[in-house]
């Protein structure tokens, strides 16, 4: 099954605006690992546009959106 990952800000560097990962019922963490992003790198995680969890098991058609932490002032 294919999972689309929509990337924002610096996650786009070297990856583009989205990547499609092919895995069978992976967790969010496993999908992110496959594109070399750790849970700690992610400030906001959305699954299908809603608040998501890293241990959530994904099904066909799910898509992720991830934003990195922004902390400057």
């Amino acid at each position: 099954m294919k999972i689309e990952v929509r990337l924002f800000a610096t996650f786009r560097n070297g990856r583009g605006k989205k990547v499609v990962v092919e895995m069978n019922n992976p967790t969010v963490t496993e999908v992110l690992q496959s594109i070399e992003i750790t849970d700690e790198d992610v400030a906001i995680l959305l699954v299908n546009g809603q608040d998501g969890r890293f241990d959530q098991v994904l099904v066909e058609g799910d898509y992720l959106s991830i934003f990195p932490p922004v902390g400057g002032g």
């Binding site: 800000a9 610096t10 700690e40 400030a43 990195p68 932490p69 922004v70 902390g71 400057g72």
Partner: peptide, 11 residues
Amino acid sequence: LYQDKGDHGIE
């Protein structure tokens, strides 16, 4: 937004 993250972000 910041749980279990470092003290700074991508800045």
